[in-house]
């Protein structure tokens, strides 16, 4: 599904990704952990070309982006279409209701008739447990509810891969569970997911693979049960010790 080869990304003189190689299969849930500044969010943002990598290549669902050349606008659009993104700070459109947030992409980008898009949006919002909040504006919703709208908005575009950028980091502790539950349901349905998070429980319960990143590189990759209980690398062990 995704094949990343020797991916580099620099911001000016600062090299954030220093050669990342990663294969992700269809239906796999990959959890990315690591200290802040390790490049995990940047890696995620490179996957949908929100950040343009400096070099390397990404093969996404049969579409190749080679960053040694200038990437065509058409390819950028393809990558955006194949991926859905959920942000740490939700980034809902504040001037649109929950329903309008979810309908926006299908109606404006895919030109799906309003009635049809509405039905689908209602279904998605019901699926994330917000069937009774269709006409609420984001400011009328709790953080957890907003983030679930964010997930529904991304799903409305029917992406092949869902990218989650610390989706629960901005939430009050008691609201984390409802968002993680929606993500687990999604994982159980077979969605391919890349999740940057600090929620070790989610990683253990829903993740197929955990990747530990540090200093712009992947240090270790393993099954959650293995990586958490029996890390191979010293740096992974140090990081995990800090968390507990």
């Amino acid at each position: 599904m995704i094949s990343i080869k020797n991916l580099h990304k620099s911001f000016g003189d600062l090299e954030v990704l220093k050669g990342v190689d990663l294969e992700i299969d269809k239906g796999e849930v990959v959890v990315v952990i690591g200290p802040s500044g390790s490049g995990k969010t940047t890696l995620l943002r490179c996957l949908n070309l929100l950040e343009m990598p400096t070099s390397g290549s990404i093969l996404l669902n049969g579409h190749l982006a080679d960053f040694s050349k200038k990437v065509q606008k058409k390819d950028i659009d393809t990558f955006k279409r194949e991926t859905g993104m959920v942000f740490q700070h939700y980034n809902l459109f504040p001037h649109k209701t929950a329903l309008e947030n979810v309908m926006e992409g299908p109606v404006i980008v895919k030109n799906i008739p309003k009635e049809k898009a509405r039905k689908k949006a209602v279904n998605l919002l019901e699926k994330v447990g917000l069937g009774d909040k269709l006409d609420f504006y984001p400011f009328q919703l709790s953080g957890g509810q907003q983030q679930r709208v964010g997930i529904a908005r991304a799903l409305a575009m029917e992406p092949q891969v869902m990218l989650f950028d610390e989706p629960t980091s901005a939430l009050d502790p008691e609201l984390v569970g409802e968002v993680l539950q929606v993500m687990k349901d999604l994982a159980n349905e077979g969605m391919t997911m890349v999740v940057v998070t600090h929620e070790m429980r989610f990683a253990q319960e829903a993740g197929n693979e955990v990747i530990f990143m540090d200093g712009g590189k992947i240090v270790e990759r393993n099954k959650p049960s293995e990586l958490f209980t029996n890390p191979k690398e010293e740096r992974t062990r140090q990081f995990l010790n800090l968390l507990t």
């Binding site: 942000f87 980034n91 459109f93 001037h95 926006e104 992409g105 409305a156």
Partner: peptide, 26 residues
């Protein structure tokens, strides 16, 4: 906020769609 542009781009909206429907109304 920059996040509004990014959110619009991730659901596939182009510059003018984002401007007209997301940024200018706000």
């Amino acid at each position: 906020p920059k996040g509004q542009w990014e959110a619009a781009h991730t659901i596939g909206m182009n510059y003018s769609q984002t401007l007209k429907r997301i940024i200018l109304p706000q």
